[in-house]
């Protein structure tokens, strides 16, 4: 697996939002939403990115797509640092990298028909030369995601959440991307519909050879679709490894607590539930040392003083925790 091509490599990525207070809007601190994050995704695989609300998952995705400007770091895609590209060069990259959003109600323009929504990327990148060709392409895209041609002239409000999410997927597919960042694509959907959309994403992955960065806030959703999983806590990645490794042999105490929250398939079997104390601390003034130490059941002195770094413990299995070194 190691020799396979990396399609995306994120190096020391940082995104700090200034916190402004007072009448004169002076910058008094920074929300370190993404704080020195590094990871890579291999071509054709799915990397799950998991963490509690507010830990910086969406921001990571938005910075990779340059929907937000990075504070520092590199995003290598197709051999180039795309953070250094100009507008025109970036426009070309947008054909290869797309996003699916969490909220199927907010992610579609309410005043556009399905045809206009799905056809917009074709128009932007001049991928069709006539109205007829555009229409044909839109029909094809809709059929790819399980919708039909006769739904084309309708508006988003006439569809259910699951159908809307399919429209969003068709829009992302329109440009023929290689990498899709799926930002909690099923979190807003009914449980019964979640599985359908996940299955659709998997079918599309096979059919078009897609690579996914799949963002989720709990490990149970990611388990099904990912090859590898990265766990994020307060702007940092605390553990990253192959899916089975993560579920069978979690190294970081935070990962273990997340895993203990997943209900077991066999009802008879009991497992110890690790309940975390307190809430996620504010990312404005994150705790010194290891960001996780105030909630960590095993925190030692060193955890309060030194920030741990991500290290490889077994091949391909990275974690950042002082306790692993002792």
């Amino acid at each position: 697996m190691g020799e396979e091509k990396k399609i995306l490599e994120v190096k020391n990525l940082k995104k700090y939002f200034p916190v402004k207070t007072g009448v004169f809007r002076k910058t008094t601190g920074y929300v370190k939403a993404v704080d020195d994050v590094s990871f890579y995704i291999r071509e054709g695989e799915t990397l799950g990115l998991v963490g509690e609300s507010g830990c910086g998952k969406s921001t990571t995705g938005a910075v990779i797509l340059r929907l937000l400007d990075a504070t520092d770091g590199e995003v290598i895609f197709g051999g180039k640092d795309i953070l250094a590209l100009n507008r025109r060069e970036m426009r070309e990259i947008r054909k290869e990298m797309q996003i699916i959003f969490q909220d199927p109600y907010a992610s579609l323009n309410p005043r556009m028909t399905v045809e206009e929504i799905v056809g917009e990327p074709l128009v932007i990148h001049k991928m069709v030369s006539s109205k007829k060709e555009k229409k044909e392409k839109v029909v094809e895209l809709l059929e790819n995601v399980g919708l039909t041609a006769d739904q084309m002239s309708r508006f988003p409000h006439e569809f259910s959440g699951g159908q809307r999410q399919r429209i969003g997927i068709a829009r992302a597919l329109a440009v023929g991307p290689k990498l899709i960042i799926a930002d909690e694509p099923v979190s807003a959907l009914d449980v019964s519909i979640q599985a359908q959309v996940i299955n659709l994403l998997q079918e599309l992955q096979e059919e078009f050879g897609l690579t996914y960065l799949f963002i989720a806030h709990d490990l149970s959703v990611v388990k099904h679709i990912s090859n590898r999983v990265a766990v994020m806590y307060l702007g940092k990645i605390v553990e990253i490894t192959g899916k089975y490794d993560l579920y069978d042999n979690p190294l970081h105490p935070y990962t273990r607590s997340l895993l203990s929250a997943i209900p077991l398939p066999e009802p008879g079997k009991k497992k110890e539930r690790i309940i975390l104390e307190g809430d996620v601390p504010s990312p404005v003034d994150p705790p010194a040392g290891c960001h996780f130490h105030p909630r960590c059941p095993m925190a030692k002195d060193i955890c309060r003083e030194k920030t741990p770094v991500l290290k490889e413990y077994t091949p391909g299995h990275f974690a950042s925790c002082h306790l692993l070194d002792q």
Partner: peptide, 20 residues
Amino acid sequence: EEFVQAARALGANDFRIIFK
């Protein structure tokens, strides 16, 4: 809003985003 972000991610220019 996410649909504006989506348009940006698709490569729409400011003019298109503002008007459409």
